[in-house]
Structures are given as structure tokens and as C-alpha cells.
Simulated scan of single mutants.
Amino acid sequence: MCFYDLEPGGLAPPGALPVARPAGLAPWQASRAAAYVERELERTIRVVELARAARLNPSYFSRAFKTTFGLSPQKYVVERRLTRAKRIMLTTDEPLCGIAATCGFSDQAHLSRIFRRREGAPPNAWRREQRQAAAVS
């Protein structure tokens, strides 16, 4: 377990006990977890599977994952799915229902709901705006 001092200057007040800070994933564990997400993005990814890839129990893995990546495993997976969806939208004319399936969303409505919440615009409108901006540049 890692410890850190209580004050920003690096010195703890006299008599203070060190406070435990959750340790992150080892580099090989982070790499394996990220690779597993990328490889299995099209299907449902469970924390238990990610933890198994990193050889940790799920509870500890979730805390360590968040310390390492700054996001919970579930949010990380959604972010990776959105990133892939954006890349596909910008480089192909594939319909949104196909993109949703390719990126692991349950259906087009799920992709649209998550996308609008994250980007502030529906996927087709975002795609149109991005392509227009690229055409002007």
C-alpha cells in the first residue's frame, strides 16, 4: 500500500498518521486491460473479465483502474466506444445502426443517447458539422 503526507509541502503535522492512498495498476496490468477493452469493444465487457485479464479481484481492480485511468472501468469503456464511433463516422458513410453495433452499443438509440449527452448534439448532426468544417479547412 502506498502512503502520502497530509500537507502539500510534503510534511505531515507531528503525530499524524499516514493516510492510505489506493495504488494504481502496474503498467502491464493497465496495458492488458486497455488492450482487452479495444479487442472486445463490440461486445459486453464486464469488470470481472477485465479484472481477470489483470489478475486482480474485481473490487480491487475497479479502484486501481480508476486511480490509473481517471475513470471507472464502465466509463472508460463508454469513452472508448464513443471514440471509435466518432472515427468511423468521420471516415465512412456507414449508417448509425451499423456503427452502434460495431462499437458495442446495444442499438442506434443507445449510441444516440450517449453521444448527445457527451457531445451535445446527435451523431448525424455532429458528423455533418465535422465534415463541413473539414471541407472548409
Rank of each mutant, 00 (worst) to 15 (best):
K66D: 04
E79G: 08
R80Q: 15
L96Y: 01
E79D: 14
R55F: 08
S59P: 00
L82V: 01
K66R: 15
E94Y: 06
R81C: 10
T83V: 09
Q74W: 02
T68S: 13
P73N: 09
I88L: 15
R55W: 07
P58K: 02
A64Y: 01
T67K: 13
E94G: 00
I88R: 12
K86L: 15
E94R: 14
Q74C: 00
E79S: 14
A64K: 04
P73A: 08
F69S: 02
A64Q: 08
T91K: 13
A64G: 01
P58A: 07
E79C: 08
L56W: 08
K66V: 03
R55V: 12
T92W: 00
F61H: 08
T67H: 05
Y76L: 05
S72D: 05
Y76D: 06
F65G: 01
S59V: 14
E79V: 03
P58D: 07
T92V: 00
F69Q: 03
P73F: 06
Y76V: 04
A64S: 14
V78I: 15
T92M: 00
T68C: 02
S59W: 10
N57E: 15
R87I: 04
R84M: 14
Q74T: 12
F65T: 02
Y60T: 14
L71Y: 12
R63T: 13
F61A: 05
S59F: 11
K86G: 07
L82E: 11
K86T: 12
D93M: 05
S62D: 01
L90M: 15
F69H: 06
V77Q: 09
L56A: 10
P95R: 13
K86W: 10
L56Q: 15
L96K: 01
S62V: 00
S72K: 05
I88W: 07
K66H: 11
Q74E: 12
N57S: 09
Y60A: 13
F65E: 04
V78D: 10
L82P: 04
P95V: 09
M89I: 08
L90Q: 13
S59I: 12
P58V: 09
P58W: 01
F69K: 03
V77P: 06
R84D: 02
V78R: 14
R55T: 11
T68D: 03
V78H: 03
T91A: 10
T68L: 02
K75G: 04
V78L: 14
L82Y: 10
Y76K: 10
G70K: 09
R81L: 07
Y60E: 13
R81T: 04
A85R: 07
M89W: 11
D93R: 14
K75S: 12
K66E: 14
F69E: 03
V77T: 13
L56Y: 11
R81I: 05
T67M: 10
M89D: 11
S62L: 00
L96I: 05
R63L: 13
M89G: 06
L71N: 05
I88A: 05
R63C: 04
L82C: 06
G70D: 06
L90I: 06
R63F: 02
E79N: 13
K75H: 11
L96C: 02
L56G: 09
L56F: 07
L56M: 15
L71P: 00
R63P: 00
R80E: 15
A64V: 00
P73H: 09
K86S: 12
L90G: 12
V77K: 10
D93V: 01
I88N: 11
A85W: 09
T91G: 04
R84G: 03
K66F: 06
